[in-house]
Design a protein around this nucleic acid. Structure first.
Lengths: 111, 111
DNA sequence: CTGCATCCGTTATGATACTG
DNA sequence: CAGTATCATAACGGATGCAG
């Protein structure tokens, strides 16, 4: 019900990123949407251990921040598709960097 | 009571990164350590809104995961210096990507 | 199918005072 | 200065039932 006055403007850009992408699921959801647009049920299947509540909640947050677009087909039964926006694509390098880090870190454990 | 069998090995690398770098403070601390090694008090000064508890706690976690090195000079009064390890440097691209994302996102808001 | 609301336990985070 | 202990609160996350 409350709108934070100035959530993400004019500050340390790393903090901006943390606010927009932080949390347990946002990057993983964006990671899936990177491959292709998807419906809620498809996302749920691709991220098996996320609860439906968190999935919807995080999608809504990212729709509000402009990272994800929500397209309601207005059909019956309901059909809704989620896909990345242009802003959402800006997050792809972050995901790529995380992937690279994760791989390099694990590789380092085996040397 | 339960230990996850395989915490960070052999899994989605993005999740590995999230586990090691996730949370509100780790990236910000690493970001400061990127510039130069620093003592606890210096870090606290550079990250004004972190509590001492969280700073020490997160540093300890990252020492345990091998991202940060802790050097105790064994002097009186105490003197401890924190700096990045080689593994810690692997996270720098993630921070750079977050910076770039934050800047690009904010820039997008003004167009 | 998609989405929302509610209850509830766990975790994360913080303020403060204290120790060596 | 570096670190610990305690206590409180806020945020997170999950299960379930309900609605359009």
């Amino acid at each position: 019900m409350d709108k934070p006055p100035v959530p993400v403007t004019a500050r340390c850009p790393v903090r901006t990123a943390l606010e927009l992408l932080g949390g347990k699921w946002k990057l993983l959801i964006l990671y899936q949407l990177e491959q292709s647009p998807a419906r809620l049920s498809a996302l749920k299947a691709r991220i098996p251990d996320i609860s439906e509540k968190m999935l919807i909640q995080e999608l809504k947050v990212m729709v509000d921040s402009g990272l994800v677009h929500r397209k309601n087909f207005g059909e019956v039964p309901p059909r809704v598709e989620y896909r990345l926006t242009e802003k959402g694509r800006l997050a792809m390098p972050v995901i790529a960097a995380c992937r690279a880090f994760g791989q390099a870190y694990v590789r380092g454990l085996r040397e």
